[in-house]
Nucleic acid binder design. Structure first.
Length: 465
RNA sequence: GCCCCCAUCGUCUAGCGGCUAGGACAGAUGAUUCUCAUUCAUCAAACCGCGGUUCGAUUCCGCGUGGGGGCACCA
C-alpha cells in the first residue's frame, strides 16, 4: 500500500480562520492516523494580496494548535523540510513552465488573447449564454466522475476550456494546485466542500497530464451560528480567527478537540478526548456530509473542562503568559509564591484564562472597586456592621496557618455569638474583595494574610460607618 | 440563470427498515458548597413537506421546500 501524503495549502492573504484550521486539522489527523506525511504548501501566487505577516500567522497558528508538518517551509522562514520542494508556490515558477510546456506539446493547451487555455477533448459547438450575454464555445467532453471519500460518487460536466496562465504570465490556482499535487505526490486531497465544484476541472487537468488523480475527500464547511446570521463563517465574524483564541489564552487542545467534533465524531458518545485518541479514531468515512454551524458556547465549555484538569504547573505558566500581557501584570507577578497561591485558588473557579485579571484583581491592589449592588444586598442583611466589628476584634487571636484553622476561628466566633459561618462570610468577602464571587473566604484570608485582611476589614467598616 | 452538495432537539451529533429517537452544549428547576463557579439530579427540546417502495419508514427512491457552495485572465 502506498504511503499517504496529504497537504494543507493556505494562501497568506488574510487572517487564519477557523475553517482553515479545521481543514488543516483533518489533513493532519489523517496523516497521523495513517502514519503518512503532512505537507504544508504555501499558495502565495497572489502577489498583490500576499504578506509576510500573514505567512507568519499561518506558521504561528499551526504551531500553536500543535499541527506539526513533515514537509514544507521551516517556520523560522529559513529553509524547508522535505525533498519535494520548494514548498512556496512563488518559488515554483520553473516547474509551472515545464508543466505548461507538457500540455502545449501534447496539444492540450493553446494560446488565446495572450493567455494560455486548457483544451478539453470533445465535439465543439457555439451557444449563446443568456446569463453572460455572449456567445461561448462549449465542448461535449462527457461527464467527470469523482469518487469522493466523503461525498460518494459525484458527477459533473466540464464544458468550457479554461485559462491556466493569465495574459500577465502568471498561472492560475487550478493549474498550480494540480501541478503541485502531482509533483509532491499527494495521495489524498482533503479540502473544503467549496472546492467540490472545481474538482471536475482538476480531474481534467490530471488527465491532461496523464496522471491518475488522487483520492478526493471534501469536508463540510463551517457556517455562522444562528446569532451571527447566514452563510459561511467569514473572517469578519466574531470568533472566526484563530489569533483571537490565542490572544484570549484558550487552550489549543480544547480548540482542537472542539474543531475535530465539527463534522466528525468517534462513533460513540465521547466528546472530550485527548488528541492522541482522536488521531487513533479519525478516519475519512467518519466525516459528516452536512455543514456545521459554529457554536462559541460549546467551545467555551470545552475550554473550561480542559482548564479545570490542568496540572498546577501548566496552569501557572498559562496564567503567567496571560499576566505578562496585562497592563498591571508585571506588578502582580513580583511575589512569585503569592502569585502562585492566588492563581491556584482561582483555577477551579474560572472558565477561561482571560478571566483571571478581573477575577483576582483585588489580590494585587488595595484599591479595588466595591460592587455597589452586592454591597447594598449584603449590608441590608442582618447586622453586617456588627459582624464586621466582631470579626475585626477576633482577628488578632485567629490562627492563619491553614484554611481549616481559619474556618475553625470563624466558626468559634460565630458560635460565641450564637450565629452561623455564613453571617460573617458574606460581609467579610465584600470587605476584602469588593464582590460576592470568588474563592473560598478561608483561602482568601490565608493568602492575603492576617495583616492585610485586618486592614481591609477596618477600612471597609470605616467607609460604611 | 446554470451546475454541485446537504437536510434529526436552538447548536454539535448518534441512528445505517421495526428504538419510549440516545448523548453533549446552551436553557429551566432542584440538591450540594461559606459566596461564586464546579459537581449531581430532574425537566423541556428534533426526524422539513408530499408522494412512492415495503408487512413496516427518521432510515431506501422521486419531487418539492429549505440551507450551503461553485460557475473569473481570485485563491
Amino acid at each position: 500500500m502506498s504511503q499517504v501524503r496529504v497537504r494543507f495549502a493556505p494562501s497568506p492573504t488574510g487572517f487564519f480562520h477557523i475553517g482553515s484550521a479545521r481543514t488543516a486539522l483533518f489533513n493532519w489527523l489523517y496523516a497521523r492516523h495513517t502514519g503518512g506525511t503532512f505537507i504544508l504548501r504555501i499558495e502565495d501566487t497572489d502577489q498583490a494580496r500576499n504578506s509576510e505577516a500573514f505567512l507568519k500567522l499561518i506558521y504561528d497558528s499551526l504551531t500553536w494548535l500543535g499541527l506539526d508538518w513533515d514537509e514544507g517551509p521551516d517556520p523560522t522562514g529559513v529553509g524547508e523540510r522535505g525533498t519535494f520542494g520548494p514548498y512556496r508556490q512563488s518559488q515554483r515558477g520553473a516547474i509551472y513552465q515545464q508543466y505548461k510546456q507538457k500540455l502545449l506539446e501534447a496539444g492540450r493547451a493553446y494560446e488565446k488573447d495572450g493567455a494560455i487555455w486548457f483544451k478539453l477533448l470533445g465535439e465543439r459547438y457555439k451557444i449563446f449564454d443568456d446569463h453572460r450575454k455572449k456567445e461561448v464555445e462549449k465542448v461535449q467532453s462527457g461527464p467527470v466522475l469523482i469518487d469522493d471519500k466523503i461525498r460518494g460518487k459525484v458527477e459533473r460536466q466540464e464544458d468550457e476550456d479554461f485559462v491556466i496562465f493569465r495574459s500577465d504570465g502568471n498561472p492560475v490556482f487550478h493549474f498550480v494546485n494540480v501541478v503541485d499535487d502531482i509533483t509532491m505526490q499527494v495521495s489524498h486531497i482533503i479540502r473544503g466542500e467549496d472546492h467540490l465544484s472545481n474538482t471536475s476541472k482538476h480531474v481534467r487537468l490530471y488527465e491532461g497530464f496523464g496522471v491518475t488523480p488522487p483520492v478526493f475527500a471534501h469536508i463540510p464547511l463551517i457556517l455562522k451560528s444562528p446569532e451571527m446570521g447566514q452563510g459561511k463563517m467569514s473572517k469578519r465574524d466574531k470568533g472566526a480567527l484563530i489569533e483571537e483564541y490565542q490572544q484570549r489564552h484558550f487552550l489549543p487542545e480544547a480548540l482542537v478537540n472542539y474543531l475535530a467534533l465539527l463534522g466528525w465524531n468517534p462513533g460513540d458518545n465521547r466528546e472530550k478526548m485527548p488528541s492522541a485518541d482522536i488521531v487513533k479514531l479519525f478516519d475519512l468515512p467518519g466525516v459528516n456530509q452536512s455543514n456545521a454551524k459554529f457554536d462559541g458556547r460549546k467551545l467555551a465549555n470545552m475550554n473550561m473542562t480542559y482548564l479545570l484538569e490542568q496540572p498546577a504547573e501548566r496552569f501557572i505558566s498559562l496564567a503567567k503568559a496571560y499576566f505578562a500581557k496585562q497592563p498591571a501584570g508585571a506588578a502582580a507577578m513580583t511575589n512569585d509564591a503569592y502569585f502562585r497561591a492566588v492563581m491556584l485558588m482561582a483555577q477551579p473557579k474560572i472558565k477561561s484564562v482571560d478571566e483571571l485579571g478581573a477575577y483576582t484583581g483585588y489580590f494585587f491592589t488595595d484599591d479595588f472597586p466595591i460592587d455597589a449592588k452586592v454591597k447594598e444586598k449584603v449590608m441590608a442583611k442582618g447586622e453586617a456592621k456588627a459582624r464586621l466589628a466582631e470579626l475585626i476584634a477576633a482577628l488578632p487571636a485567629m490562627d492563619f496557618s491553614s484554611d481549616a484553622a481559619i474556618e475553625a476561628g470563624i466558626k468559634t466566633l460565630a458560635e460565641s455569638q450564637a450565629l452561623g459561618f455564613g453571617d460573617y462570610q458574606a460581609v467579610a468577602r465584600l470587605a476584602v474583595s469588593g464582590t460576592n464571587a470568588g474563592p473560598n473566604i478561608t483561602g482568601m484570608f490565608r493568602v492575603l494574610g492576617q495583616e492585610r485582611v485586618k486592614a481591609r476589614l477596618e477600612r471597609f467598616l470605616a467607609s460604611v460607618a
